[in-house]
Design a protein around this nucleic acid. Structure first.
Lengths: 145, 145
DNA sequence: CCAAACTGGTTTCATTTGTAACCATCGAAA
DNA sequence: TTTCGATGGTTACAAATGAAACCAGTTTGG
């Protein structure tokens, strides 16, 4: 009997992964080429820039990173003196992370580039396509969690 | 001056990556847990199952993998005796790869599971959302290449 | 012809990642 | 209290990855 065939190019998990990988790889230029950051480091910077002060656990939840990634990213950003740790008053396991001036400066520099990158991606689409992305992604995200 | 803020959860590259990562991680159960395959190995198997015979270069193009990934995946599948290499008649650099009986059997076993997985993903969406995914992904893919 | 540029594929090495074990601290329950 | 399970975070080790160097073999241009 003929084996059933899977058309990889039209297989949703593959398409998603390939698209994300390509976009992510291009986007990495913004934090990697200019500052030598890894993706976890960029996300950490981004999380702290957005929320001010966070714990490592909160960072992991917000940016979907395993705690080892967070731990290493935080260690590296601390080494660069882009963030500082403050022990929690009540729970000595917890550390509150905050960007330093230097960290904030790097963040402030990259945010406009990130936004421009996203605009560039969407600029090539028409309004209907942009709406489709929004709706489609939201729908998929909804039934993951 | 207040630094401009980037909302990571709504940032397209991040959303794409997170979604792809989550879907991909779940899907990996099908080839990893049952046969201990890596993603490149799965893609190689899938490419050969779909197209019959291919060269390593063609595999890399079809499934968006760097040639080192292809090389290693092919080596492992060969070690398992899931594929064989046949030297090209005219160009001695080229090898044609083909699945063995065992390779085909594994492929035939996994394809229905893969399709069921995809159906499961889409089953939770309504028709409009499915159409949105199709349109949105296609639009983004279009202006990558 | 022959050198240089190119192509298919492999290997090496450094970096990144994931898993699991681990340490310290905390909270609840006996 | 003491103990036991959960939790915040780090570390150790193995496996996966990417970049660049590499080795055939092939094509091109002089």
């Amino acid at each position: 009997m003929e084996p059933e065939i899977l058309d990889l190019e039209n297989f949703l998990p593959y398409r998603l992964y390939r698209l994300a990988d390509a976009v992510s790889r291009e986007f990495a230029g913004i934090y990697k080429d200019s500052h030598g950051l890894t993706r976890p480091e960029w996300r950490t910077l981004s999380g702290l820039g957005q929320h001010g002060t966070m714990t490592a656990t909160a960072l992991g939840e917000q940016s979907a990173m395993h705690k080892t990634k967070v731990s290493r990213a935080v260690a590296e950003l601390e080494r660069r003196r882009w963030l500082t740790r403050t022990p929690d008053e009540n729970d000595r396991r917890v550390e509150h992370l905050t960007l330093t001036k230097a960290g904030l400066a790097a963040y402030a520099e990259m945010v406009p580039l990130a936004k421009a990158f996203e605009r560039g991606l969407l600029a090539k689409l028409n309004a209907g396509e942009r709406a489709a992305i929004a709706e489609g992604l939201a729908a998929l995200e909804r039934n993951l969690a």
